[in-house]
Design a protein around this nucleic acid. Sequence first.
DNA 1: CTCCGTTGTATGTTATAATGCACAAAAATG
DNA 2: CATTTTTGTGCATTATAACATACAACGGAG
Lengths: 185, 185
Amino acid sequence: MKEIHVVVAENVKAYRKANKLSLDKVSELTGVSKTMLGQIERGDSIPTITTLWKIANGLKISFTSLIKELTNDVTIISKNDLLELPGNDGKYKVYPYFPFENDKQFEIYMVEIEPGGYLEADPHHEGTEEYITVFDGQLELTIVGQTYLLEKDHSIRFKANCKHAYYNPGNELTRLNMTINYPSM
Amino acid sequence: MKEIHVVVAENVKAYRKANKLSLDKVSELTGVSKTMLGQIERGDSIPTITTLWKIANGLKISFTSLIKELTNDVTIISKNDLLELPGNDGKYKVYPYFPFENDKQFEIYMVEIEPGGYLEADPHHEGTEEYITVFDGQLELTIVGQTYLLEKDHSIRFKANCKHAYYNPGNELTRLNMTINYPSM
DNA sequence: CTCCGTTGTATGTTATAATGCACAAAAATG
DNA sequence: CATTTTTGTGCATTATAACATACAACGGAG
């Protein structure tokens, strides 16, 4: 995961090379100084939003093409590779397989809850939704005082902008897939 | 046509008010100082790309929602409720827990593949990505002739705009979660 | 070949981004 | 009601973004 200004640097440089433009020419087109363009391309300086806007507009390219990181084609992750996020009682374990990244609007976790394990979650922002599929065991989900019991192979979708809690009421490990969708305003 | 930093100012402020967050809270979430957030919102300062990135990531909103000039409560699904989508050999079963809908950019399936089960998938649209987490068994995934073997508790992310195939090479049922992300155009 | 123009980088300067701290006003609490 | 906490803004400081200028190296023209 590169720093955003490094991503910008690579994208600006790539565009300039692809179109055989000098720093002078880009400076002319964009109204940003040649020196600053060099600094940006070398990652020596972090441009303001206005400077970037000038570059995008001057070159007539989309803003997002400047900030978009080329993703690896294939990424493989094992649970062993992950740093387990702390639940509050040691019986609730969260594995962040695909954490939130700015170019997509969701994140994916695997969650394991031992019998009796419990977690109370703070409300997410307005419009956020959770999708949970139970692969093993049972899950008792409480949303604003309303309790839902999910068996194996059950799934649930709910708005996550209110207080909610997860609990394993059974006597075997609960394993579930959790996808959290954030609204794109 | 407003200056870009004024647009950003309005969007940050609107988001914060809509979610009833204080400057302090946003500062906490984003790692940007309270003072700077105030400056940004009042249009008194032009943030660097990094500062804006911190804001977008900290609030888990899309970057473009910051630069752009300005939804049913609970659904429960059981596998039994679903019409199983046909695989091509009876050994590959797809359960569409949350099919694609216009207000979000992804869909979620549970997939079960019996030993020896196989499915060849047509390419999705350009930019489409798949995220697969193996909950049980093994999965052999072939993407443009390249083969990946996934064990239990492994996950993979790959571009789904090319021919790919799923195969269970083991001797037990493979169960996996599949999330398909479509590009936001 | 020499000379000139172009290119990208280094340097120094100025303006401002980003922060920590202080504080008045508003809101919350008892 | 009085007191405490929270909130957003102002001020001073530090680091750095953005610029103008200088210049070495390179490429092209004659």
